[in-house]
């Protein structure tokens, strides 16, 4: 199978998964006992039967479940996620307006993870089992064990409050592309990227160690290539492929991490909106963000698979 056919096939394969994602999203909110309207009526006896029916109609809650699902999904497909119940604003507007902040944070987290983890992984693999390796392995283990909300709190405490190096407030009127954004991004970016950095470092170390034991490395060394060239040109390249396999997983973890980190840092992104919406029972917003997250992770998986397939000649497109 050619790479092109693989890409096509792989792309098509996400359709049923996307369908499944939409079913889970919808199902979680609609198969639970007592839909929003029932609850509203229970709380507010002044609501008349006609009003109740109208509410159901408006919130797409009338008719059998599958019909409600079809209604909902057909609206979603044209980008209509309904209205925020309290303010009557378009949910899609809310999601789009918050999205850039989250993407900026996620990208920064990713960048931080790569910048820290790859050199650390190389260092640990080359210096396997000496003190530096032990320390960096310990740090990596700490990195995946530390609760990110606690890490965020500690970073704010030390770097913003004690040392006064970074702002406490989240950015509000700064343009996302302006240079001062960097100051705002550093602490939440580090918080969100730490777990990923630790994971990447561990994978880098393992795969580099593996690669370094391979025959071609011995051969290259025997040829008299400088160690630096051997590592950077050959070993590193092959090891990075294993990082690509991680990419989708880590993207999912960064997406989830953004929920907690945005709350800790008061960051005006989708994650905070998600928690706000949960607290205010804004069901349409919660559903939209859930669905959005699912689609995003699926796409990240797709891209990672394609990149991996393109990079690794050993893979069979079966």
């Amino acid at each position: 199978m050619s790479l092109q056919r693989f890409i096509l096939k792989r792309t098509l394969s996400i359709i049923p998964i996307m369908f499944g994602v939409s079913v889970i999203t919808f199902g979680m909110f609609h198969l639970t006992p007592g839909d929003p309207v029932t609850q509203l009526v229970a709380l507010n006896p002044d609501v008349s039967a006609a009003e109740e029916a109208a509410l159901r109609e408006r919130w797409g809650l009338s008719g059998p479940v599958w019909e409600q699902y079809l209604d909902w999904i057909s609206n979603v497909l044209v980008g209509d996620f309904g209205l925020e119940l309290q303010t009557g604003r378009e949910v899609s507007d809310i999601v789009w307006s918050r999205l850039p902040e989250t993407i900026a944070l996620g990208l920064f987290g990713w960048a931080f993870a790569l910048v820290i983890a790859i050199p650390a992984g190389i260092y640990a693999a080359i210096n396997k089992d000496n003190l530096g390796d032990t320390i960096s392995r310990f740090l990596a283990l700490s990195g995946i064990s530390i609760p990110n909300f606690w890490l965020g709190l500690m970073l704010i405490l030390i770097f913003s409050l004690y040392l006064g190096l970074f702002p406490v407030l989240a950015p509000s009127r700064q343009s996302l592309l302006s240079p001062e954004m960097l100051w705002y991004l550093i602490l939440p970016g580090i918080t969100i990227g730490t777990a990923s950095a630790a994971s990447i470092m561990r994978v880098m170390r393992t795969s580099m160690t593996e690669e370094l034991n391979k025959e071609y490395v011995t051969a290259a060394r025997a040829k008299g290539l400088p160690e630096r060239t051997v590592i950077l040109k050959h070993v590193l390249r092959n090891s990075l492929i294993s990082v690509v396999t991680l990419a989708a997983t880590l993207t999912a973890s960064i997406v989830a991490g953004s929920v907690v980190v945005e709350v800790v840092f008061n960051w005006p992104g989708l994650g905070r909106e998600f928690i706000d919406a949960i607290n205010q029972r804004e069901i349409n917003v919660v559903m939209a963000i859930t669905l959005f997250t699912g689609f995003f992770v699926i796409l990240a998986n797709l891209v990672a698979d394609i990149v991996y397939a393109a990079l690794d000649p050993r893979i069979r497109y079966d």
């Binding site: 507010n44 029972r281 069901i283």
Partner: peptide, 12 residues
């Protein structure tokens, strides 16, 4: 009134 309106917004 506003809050009652919101109270029922999800099964909870």
């Amino acid at each position: 009134i506003a809050t009652i309106g919101a109270a029922g917004a999800a099964s909870l």
